[in-house]
Design a protein around this nucleic acid. Structure first.
Lengths: 143, 143
DNA sequence: CCTTGACTTGAAGTTGACTTCAACTTTTAT
DNA sequence: ATAAAAGTTGAAGTCAACTTCAAGTCAAGG
């Protein structure tokens, strides 16, 4: 496939594909003349990248977890750490979703009174602390 | 409370607090001399902002959902839409976490063969398409 | 009274993830 | 054969969310 075909099939712009290649997240199989050619596997890789991004991972982190060929990296501990992080995120997202639904449904004028809303705030507060760690932690994955 | 007190209690730097105030996410109760004073409620608001960010919302979106006083905005549909988006995200994150744990455990050399990994890729692919909607959708919340 | 330290401002700098641009080379269609 | 469409490059621009900086204000303690 040429770059336009990949772009068409995945919705990822050609400029982004070149950018990803430069960053080492995907690899072209070579050139036909001056133009890049991509194998079908790149479609899966791009899906994986997109999923990783949705999970809040940076491109550098994603690159650390998967080979440019799309296979998971050998560093099992890294993968497990990421899974743990994602699970923690899921917990907070659940609280958020629940809180939003409650806020939409509850006709109470002052949510400061409402126990459900308070629970949301409590979850939020604990999350706030974690957040400060996150960026530091993610940059130094080992130990 | 003065700005340093808020920063100390929440972990949010003073510079960020000023930035949030300029953006209209929080409000000071006024000035004592030249210095900002904040009511206790601002602590909850900051927790809420942090939670919103963890859910992947931009500051502009968060401002749209809550008044600067911290009360949820009247637009119930907006809140529900956000909750739906977050739930969809949770689904994909679960797939991601599960997939990562599997990848860490599975000694198979080629994950292209493995049904669990394939499931992850499928979840990723469906997400990849959604992602392109997201930004457009969020910018035009109504209809 | 005067220094010190916390606060103020607007402006400029930073980072990650891209996008856009200018200038150029290839393909492809007529 | 030639012109338009699509690809290439490196460099520069954009955007969100902050942070840092320079220059200044002000209250409190010695």
């Amino acid at each position: 496939m040429d770059i336009a075909e990949v772009a068409k099939r995945t919705g990822v712009p050609a400029s982004t594909l070149r950018y990803y290649e430069k960053k080492g997240l995907i690899a072209s199989t070579g050139r036909q003349g001056i133009r890049r050619r991509f194998a079908d596997g790149v479609l899966d890789q791009l899906a994986l990248i997109s999923l990783g991004q949705a999970a809040g991972l940076s491109l550098d982190e994603i690159r650390a977890m998967f080979t440019p060929g799309g296979e998971p990296n050998i560093d099992r501990q890294l993968l497990l750490n990421k899974a743990d992080e994602i699970d923690a995120l899921i917990k907070r997202l659940k609280a958020m979703s629940h809180g939003l639904r409650h806020a939409a449904a509850c006709p109470a004028p002052s949510h400061a009174e409402c126990p459900t809303f308070k629970k949301l705030l409590k979850a939020a507060a604990s999350g706030a602390i974690e957040r400060r760690w996150k960026s530091a932690e993610l940059k130094r994955p080992g130990k």
